[in-house]
C-alpha cells in the first residue's frame, strides 16, 4: 500500500498540498455510497432493533421490553413460517446446487455438441421476473393445468394432483418453481469456474489412473469449493427472504402451509392491523438465521485456503 502511494506522489511533486488533495479525492469518490448505505441499510437495522422492543397499532408504539420476543416463541404462524422456510432451505437448496453442478460438469466437456444451445436454454429462466414466472407456474400447476394433463397422459398419475391447494403438494410446487428459476443461474457460476481449471490437472490425474468419478471428487470439488460456498450462502440468504413466489403462486396457503418468514413480516406490517414493532422482531429472526447459517457454512466450507 505504501509503495503504491509513494509511486503516486512522484508525479505530483512532493507538495503536501497535492498529496492531501489526492487522498481527499479518494474519499470523495466513496462519499455517496457511504452515506447511502449508512442511511438505507445500517440505520434501518438499528431502527428495526429498537422497534423490536416496542408494540402497538400503526405509529402508536409503546416500549414493551422483551414481550415481542416471548410472543415469538408461542406464535404458531411464526413457527409455521420458520418451519416452511427450513423445509425449502434443506430440500430446495441442496437439490438445486447439486443439479447445477452436475449440469455444469456435463457442459464443460470439450467434445459436447450444441453446448451453446444447452447453456442458453438452461440459463434462460434467469431472465424472467419472479412475479411473471410465478404467475405462469400457478396456472401450469392448476388442478386442470398442463402439468397434470401431461402426467396423466404419461400414466405417471391416475388422479390430478392438487398442486396449489394441498398443503404438501403446494410446498413441492414452490420448490419446483424456485429450482426451475435458479438452477441455471447457479450453473453459470460453476461453469465459469470449471473453465478456469487447467485441463492439465485432469490429464495428470488420468495418467495416474484416476477415473472420472475420482477426478470429480479429488480435483473438481476441492477447486470449486470457494464458488460452492458462495452459491450456498447466496441461495441460503435468498431462500430466507423468499417472498415473490410464495405470494404469487399460493398466497402462502392453503392455510399457512407455504407461508415464508418474509411474507409473514409483510402481512404483520401491511395486511393485518399493522404492528411494526412485532414485525421488526420477526425480521430480526431472519437476521439471526442469516448470521448463524453463514457462520456455519463458512466453518464447513471455508477452511483457510493456503
Amino acid at each position: 500500500m505504501h509503495t503504491e502511494k509513494a509511486g503516486l506522489n512522484q508525479h505530483i511533486g512532493k507538495s503536501m498540498n497535492g498529496r492531501t488533495r489526492i487522498r481527499l479525492t479518494g474519499w470523495f469518490f466513496m462519499l455517496v455510497p457511504v452515506v447511502m448505505i449508512s442511511v438505507f441499510y445500517f440505520y434501518p437495522m438499528v431502527q428495526a432493533l429498537l422497534l423490536s422492543f416496542k408494540s402497538g397499532r400503526g405509529s402508536n408504539l409503546q416500549f414493551v421490553g422483551l414481550d415481542n420476543y416471548t410472543r415469538l416463541l408461542s406464535d404458531t404462524t411464526f413457527l409455521t413460517a420458520v418451519k416452511n422456510t427450513f423445509i425449502y432451505l434443506l430440500i430446495q437448496v441442496p437439490v438445486m446446487l447439486v443439479l447445477a453442478l452436475f449440469i455444469a460438469v456435463l457442459l464443460n466437456d470439450d467434445r459436447l455438441r450444441f453446448k451453446g444451445f444447452f447453456r442458453t436454454a438452461i440459463f434462460l429462466p434467469t431472465v424472467t421476473s419472479l412475479v411473471a414466472y410465478s404467475v405462469v407456474f400457478k396456472y401450469m400447476f392448476g388442478a386442470d393445468g398442463i402439468v397434470n394433463k401431461f402426467l396423466v397422459k404419461l400414466h405417471l398419475i391416475q388422479e390430478p394432483i392438487q398442486w396449489i391447494t394441498d398443503p404438501f403438494w403446494a410446498k413441492i410446487t414452490i420448490i419446483i418453481a424456485i429450482t426451475w428459476r435458479f438452477t441455471g443461474y447457479n450453473m453459470i457460476f460453476y461453469l465459469s469456474s470449471l473453465q478456469n481449471i487447467d485441463k492439465s490437472v485432469y490429464e495428470a490425474a488420468r495418467i495416474d489412473g484416476a477415473n472420472a468419478f475420482r477426478q470429480f471428487f479429488t480435483i473438481t470439488i476441492p477447486l470449486l469449493k470457494p464458488i460452492i460456498l458462495f452459491t450456498t450462502i447466496t441461495s441460503t440468504i435468498g431462500t430466507l427472504q423468499l417472498f415473490d413466489e410464495v405470494v404469487n403462486i399460493t398466497k402462502g396457503g392453503p392455510g399457512n402451509a407455504t407461508m415464508s418468514i418474509s411474507q409473514y413480516i409483510y402481512n404483520l406490517s401491511f395486511e393485518y392491523t399493522p404492528d411494526f414493532g412485532y414485525a421488526a422482531t420477526v425480521s430480526y429472526s431472519i437476521v439471526l438465521m442469516v448470521v448463524l447459517l453463514t457462520m456455519i457454512q463458512n466453518k464447513i466450507g471455508g477452511d483457510k485456503r493456503s
Binding site: I237, I261, S269, S283, V290
Partner: peptide, 11 residues
C-alpha cells in the same frame, strides 16, 4: 448480508 425483509418496516 442484511436481508431486505429485516429493514423494510423501518424503511
Amino acid at each position: 448480508m442484511i436481508p431486505f425483509a429485516a429493514i423494510m418496516v423501518p424503511l
